[in-house]
Amino acid sequence: MTDQQAEARSYLSEEMIAEFKAAFDMFDADGGGDISVKELGTVMRMLGQTPTKEELDAIIEEVDEDGSGTIDFEEFLVMMVRQ
């Protein structure tokens, strides 16, 4: 866990972390443990947004600390705390 990830967790109660985990699992449609650009786009479109591929890439790049091209749960928490 990076310093950013530990800091993000410090702002959240266990209840909030559990709620974010449920949301993360909804995004992680294939159950792979991370959110891909495609999965992020699908959920955002379900919520009425129309992000471009470039916008989706930028969202993932902003929090993808390990350079995997996807968002894992710890990175997702950082993203949610920043919102």
Rank of each mutant, 00 (worst) to 15 (best):
M1D: 12
T2S: 14
D3E: 13
D3K: 13
Q4Y: 10
Q5S: 09
Q5W: 05
A6K: 15
A6P: 14
A6R: 11
E7Q: 09
E7M: 07
A8P: 12
A8K: 08
R9Q: 09
Y11M: 09
Y11K: 10
L12A: 03
S13V: 01
E14I: 02
E14K: 05
E14T: 09
E15D: 06
E15T: 09
M16V: 08
M16I: 03
I17H: 02
I17F: 04
I17E: 04
A18M: 08
E19D: 13
E19R: 08
F20Q: 01
F20M: 13
K21Y: 02
K21E: 05
A22L: 08
A22Q: 08
A22E: 08
A22G: 08
A23F: 15
A23T: 11
F24Y: 03
D25H: 09
D25Q: 06
M26H: 00
M26D: 09
M26P: 05
M26V: 10
M26S: 14
F27M: 07
D28S: 07
D28K: 15
D28L: 04
A29N: 01
D30F: 05
D30E: 11
D30V: 12
G31L: 04
G32S: 12
G33S: 03
D34N: 03
D34A: 06
I35F: 02
I35T: 00
S36Y: 15
V37N: 15
V37C: 07
V37I: 15
V37H: 10
K38Q: 10
K38V: 06
K38F: 00
K38A: 10
E39V: 08
L40Y: 06
L40S: 01
G41N: 08
G41I: 11
T42L: 11
T42R: 06
V43P: 00
V43M: 12
V43W: 00
M44E: 00
M44I: 05
M44H: 00
R45Q: 15
L47D: 00
L47P: 00
L47Y: 03
G48A: 04
G48D: 12
G48F: 01
T50V: 07
T50Q: 03
P51S: 05
P51L: 12
T52M: 12
T52Q: 13
K53C: 02
E54A: 12
E54T: 10
E54P: 15
E55D: 09
E55R: 08
E55N: 07
L56W: 03
L56S: 02
L56C: 04
D57G: 06
D57F: 10
A58K: 15
A58G: 06
A58Q: 11
I59F: 10
I59C: 04
I59E: 03
I59L: 10
I60V: 12
E61Y: 10
E61P: 04
E62Y: 10
E62H: 13
E62R: 06
E62K: 14
V63H: 14
V63L: 05
V63S: 09
V63C: 08
D64R: 13
D64C: 11
E65H: 10
E65G: 13
E65A: 15
D66P: 08
G67F: 02
G67P: 06
S68N: 05
G69N: 09
T70V: 12
T70E: 08
I71Y: 01
D72F: 09
D72C: 13
D72G: 15
F73H: 01
F73E: 01
F73L: 03
E75C: 09
E75K: 03
E75Y: 04
E75H: 10
F76T: 00
F76N: 00
F76W: 01
V78N: 13
V78P: 11
V78G: 13
V78K: 15
M79K: 04
M79C: 14
M79Y: 11
M80G: 01
M80C: 08
M80N: 03
M80H: 03
M80P: 00
M80S: 06
R82C: 05
R82G: 14
